[in-house]
Each structure stands twice: as structure tokens, then as C-alpha cells.
């Protein structure tokens, strides 16, 4: 081999890889650019426009939407409440899903397939239908309250308040959480658990010292997914909250569709995007810490 071919061979290889990569990534870059980046930029621009009422937009650019949102006690409260409610839903979803995911991870053969289908099956019906299902269960004369009354207990207010929203969203997010947990349980090894047992760890210690740390990648992924879905969901909070539970997503809907104040809706949307960004940063930090 001559010196010339030795130099050009790797070079031409690199350029062909660059060409191939461009070819393969081209379609997704185009789709993402047109369907995601452009609208988001558009939204960002919109948040600096003036609202003229009745859906009209002023020509001038202004910081009013941002300044009023970030100073107004109502919106700050709204943002804090949205984050706290979503965190609570995320934690409840995790607690409810973790044992199911752990059991599924250990199940074998046909039994595992059946259980997995059962876990995924709620995703086959729309969240709207499932939300109406929850209304039937949680309503004042619904399944739970009728049962309570039959038992002689006092009825509870479970619908059109935060309790209803939290219960409904927790159940709706569970399939996503379980799938994310399962995806992150790869490092669990029954031999490692046995090793801990032979070294004197009680089942309780094995769970906290071995199983929990080894499943942290799944927990982090599931929590990120649930949190993002909880913050951005609006149908379930709207129906189960009955207009009395105010969250960012429902407020955006109201501003955009009812009040027709698009710049304010755009500003709130950008704030949600910032919250997602923060959640993503937290997730990657956490993942690096546990791996």
C-alpha cells in the first residue's frame, strides 16, 4: 500500500459516513424542524406580541405577557400548584406501579405475556373514555360513595376537586410508568439478590440496599415520563376538576380557546417547556449519579 492510499482511504471513508449520516438523519431533521422547532419558535414569538382582546394581535413586540405572568400572584401560584400536583401524581404513580413492574419483571413465560397485555390494555382506550369511567366511580352517587353510604359511612367529595384529578391521572399514567420501569430493570439479577441474602441481608435490606438502587434507572425514566405527561395533560384535570382545579395546562386551554388571549397562552406554554427542560436536566443528573 502506498502512502497516498493510506492517507486518502480513511478520509474518503469519513466523508462517506458523513454523507450516509446526513441521508439517514435528513428525514427526521426535516420532520422535527417543520413540526416541532418551527411551531415552538412561532409560539415564542407569539408570547412577545400584544393581545388586543377578542383574539386580535398587536403589531408591536412587548414584554408585558412575560412580566405580568411572572409577577402576578395568580400565575405564580398556578405554576407552583401545577408542579406540586404533578410531582404528587408522579410519586403516587411510582408507588402504585413499582410492585406491579417488579412482579412482571420476575414473571415468566405465558403468564408474563398475559400480565403485560393487561398492563398495556388501558392504553387501547382513550384517556377521555377512562376519565368518564372515573367520573362514574368518584361521583357523589358513584360507586365509591354508594358503597360508603351502604356501609353507613359519610360520603366523601371525590369529584370536581384535586383529589379526583390526582386519582384519575395516577391511574391513567400507570401503564406508562410500568413500561418505563420494566425498561429500566435490566440490571436486576436474582443471583445478586441471593448474594446479598447469604451475606446476612434480610429481605427488607435486600430491597432497599440492592433492588431499589439497581432499579433507579427505571425509576428515573418512569418519573420523568409521568411528570411530563401529568404537567401537560388537560382533558383529565378539566373533566375531573370540573373547572375548579386550576393547572397550567387547563389555563392554557382556557386562554387559547375561551378568552382567545393567544399571547398569554403562548407565554404559559413556554413556561411549561422550561419546566420540562428542568425535569430533563434533573433526570440526566440523577441517572449519572446512580450509574
Amino acid at each position: 500500500m502506498t502512502a497516498a492510499t493510506m492517507i486518502t482511504a480513511p478520509g474518503s471513508r469519513t466523508s462517506s459516513i458523513v454523507f450516509l449520516a446526513t441521508l439517514l438523519l435528513g428525514p427526521i431533521i426535516a420532520v422535527n424542524g417543520l413540526a416541532f422547532i418551527m411551531p415552538v419558535l412561532n409560539l415564542l414569538m407569539l408570547s412577545f406580541r400584544e393581545s388586543l382582546g377578542g383574539g386580535g394581535l398587536g403589531d408591536a413586540y412587548t414584554l408585558d405577557n412575560w412580566s405580568s405572568t411572572l409577577v402576578d400572584g395568580f400565575y405564580i401560584e398556578l405554576i407552583v400548584q401545577s408542579i406540586l400536583t404533578s410531582l404528587m401524581i408522579t410519586i403516587l404513580t411510582l408507588v402504585a406501579s413499582y410492585p406491579i413492574a417488579l412482579y412482571l419483571h420476575r414473571a415468566q413465560g405465558r403468564w408474563r405475556t398475559i400480565l403485560l397485555v393487561l398492563v398495556i390494555s388501558p392504553l387501547l382506550t382513550s384517556a377521555v373514555v377512562r376519565t368518564y369511567g372515573w367520573i362514574a366511580i368518584l361521583a357523589d352517587d358513584g360507586l365509591i360513595n354508594n358503597t360508603l353510604k351502604a356501609l353507613g359511612a359519610d360520603a366523601m367529595r371525590l369529584l370536581f376537586n384535586k383529589v379526583g384529578v390526582v386519582i384519575g391521572l395516577t391511574e391513567i399514567l400507570m401503564p406508562y410508568m410500568i413500561l418505563a420501569l420494566l425498561a429500566g430493570f435490566g440490571r436486576l439479577d436474582p443471583r445478586v439478590e441471593e448474594a446479598a441474602e447469604t451475606l446476612g441481608a434480610s429481605p427488607w435490606k435486600v430491597f432497599w440496599r440492592i433492588i431499589v438502587p439497581l432499579t433507579m434507572p427505571g425509576v428515573a425514566l418512569g418519573c420523568l415520563l409521568s411528570f411530563v405527561l401529568a404537567v401537560s395533560s388537560f382533558i383529565t384535570p378539566k373533566l375531573l376538576g370540573g373547572g375548579r382545579v386550576f393547572l397550567l395546562a387547563t389555563e392554557i386551554y382556557d386562554q387559547a380557546i375561551v378568552t382567545l388571549n393567544w399571547p398569554l397562552a403562548a407565554t404559559l406554554s413556554m413556561i411549561i417547556l422550561v419546566i420540562f427542560g428542568a425535569a430533563l436536566v434533573l433526570y440526566s443528573r440523577l441517572l449519572r449519579a446512580v450509574l
Partner: peptide, 29 residues
């Protein structure tokens, strides 16, 4: 139960705790 038996077991697949350092692994018991 195994954790009350006072035995040591060395596995074919090593079965070390992947999330702990060598020192922590040895200190676990």
C-alpha cells in the same frame, strides 16, 4: 432463611453488587 445461616457463597457469575465499589461490596456482609 439464608441470611440467618452464617454462610459465604461464591457464585459462578460473581454476583457482585454493580452499584457499589469493591470496598463497599466487601464491607456489605
Amino acid at each position: 432463611a439464608p441470611y440467618r445461616r452464617d454462610i459465604g457463597l461464591v457464585f459462578q457469575s460473581y454476583a457482585l453488587f454493580p452499584h457499589m465499589s469493591v470496598l463497599k461490596n466487601v464491607m456489605f456482609g
